[in-house]
């Protein structure tokens, strides 16, 4: 079964993650292996994790989505504007009803870009790389246009307090949301027909078509799912930072793709797992934190992160080759 194959590769990449944690813990035992560090690590990785769960589905279909970061911004912009207009211009003091509408707007705005991406890829038959590169620019432009070029920085304080910084049973709500998305994503991918078709289309789209699977419909749904999750991520980012942060999220797409690929999902499609993606997202996150905590000089950090990423994938690839040649 597919799950079994990816489980084997997940184990090795998980070892890399564990090893990194051990090394940082040994270097700075007072700072790294702490509840505080774990909590903030999880909270800060939550947005990227939500994006990466969606990205996993797309990459398993042998597609790619470069637009996630911009769609995130677009969704958070629409959401913030909708909440502000509902609250008469400044939603800082608005209640849960306004925040809920904001969530819906973010989800719909994100999903709409996903539908557009999916239609262009399947119906107009433009390669995903080009379609999503186009919407990467277009969604950012649309967000800037909607906000007249400026960040919207009035967000319901209640939403920031609950989603951005609140806890449930000691677990930050940001982390809970990401956890639920991850579990649902894993369930969808491994146990349902939707997941099976995702693998089949990535493995051999022609075979899928010939057995009567509507490849067009399924791909549109997959791109819509990514868009929807980017919308959710946009809402989460809004709750965390209390502003639309238009200058940011430029490398979210590459970070998500890197996380997915690190997690053993093949860029050629047909192979992948959500568990792998979780680990793949946390490796760079742990590295970034670890280097700051252990006091590695700022200029060295990107070099070291880059080196470890390449080394981890090389390690994973050579393990896989060894297994395939057995």
């Amino acid at each position: 079964m597919v799950a079994k194959l990816s489980k084997i590769t997940t184990v090795w990449i998980a070892l890399v993650l564990v090893l990194l944690c051990v090394v940082f813990s040994v270097i700075n035992p007072a700072a790294f292996p702490t509840a505080f560090n774990l909590k903030t690590l999880l909270v800060e990785a939550a947005v990227l994790l939500v994006l990466s769960v969606g990205m996993t589905f797309v990459i398993i279909t042998a597609g790619i989505d470069l637009s996630v970061g911009s769609v995130l911004l677009f969704a958070s912009m629409c959401s913030a504007l909708a909440m502000n207009s509902m609250a008469g211009g400044d939603s800082t003091a608005a209640g849960a009803d306004v925040a809920f509408v904001g969530l819906l707007v973010a989800l719909v705005a994100g999903a709409a870009w996903g539908v557009l991406n999916g239609l262009l890829i399947t119906v107009a038959k433009v390669p995903p790389l080009i379609v999503t590169l186009g919407s990467f620019g277009a969604a950012l432009g649309a967000a800037q246009l909607a906000g007249d070029g400026t960040d919207v920085d009035t967000v319901p304080e209640g939403m920031r307090e609950w989603l951005g910084f609140g806890n449930t049973l000691g677990i930050p709500n940001m982390v809970l949301v990401a956890l639920i998305v991850t579990l649902l994503g894993g369930w969808l991918l491994t146990t349902t027909r939707f997941g099976r078709y995702t693998f089949a289309i990535g493995s051999n789209p022609e075979a899928a078509r010939r057995v009567g699977i509507s490849v067009t419909r399924h791909l549109i749904m997959v791109y819509t799912l990514v868009g929807l999750l980017a919308g959710l991520a946009g809402y989460m980012s809004l709750a965390q930072f209390g502003a639309t942060t238009l200058s940011g999220h430029t490398t979210d797409n590459l970070n998500a793709i890197a996380g997915v690929v690190l997690g053993g999902t093949s860029l050629f499609g047909g192979v992948g797992s959500i568990a792998g993606t979780v680990i793949g997202v946390f490796i760079p996150a742990v590295l970034t934190r670890g280097f700051i905590i252990t006091g590695v000089q700022a200029y060295w950090q990107p070099i070291a992160v880059g080196l470890v990423l390449v080394a981890a994938v090389w390690f994973d690839q050579s393990r896989r080759r060894a297994r395939n040649n057995r």
Binding site: V2, R196, F199, S203, A208, G269, G270
Partner: peptide, 11 residues
């Protein structure tokens, strides 16, 4: 053949 090489026989 039109099979999906990454899936198992039953799938």
């Amino acid at each position: 053949l039109a099979i999906a090489p990454e899936l198992d026989p039953a799938a």
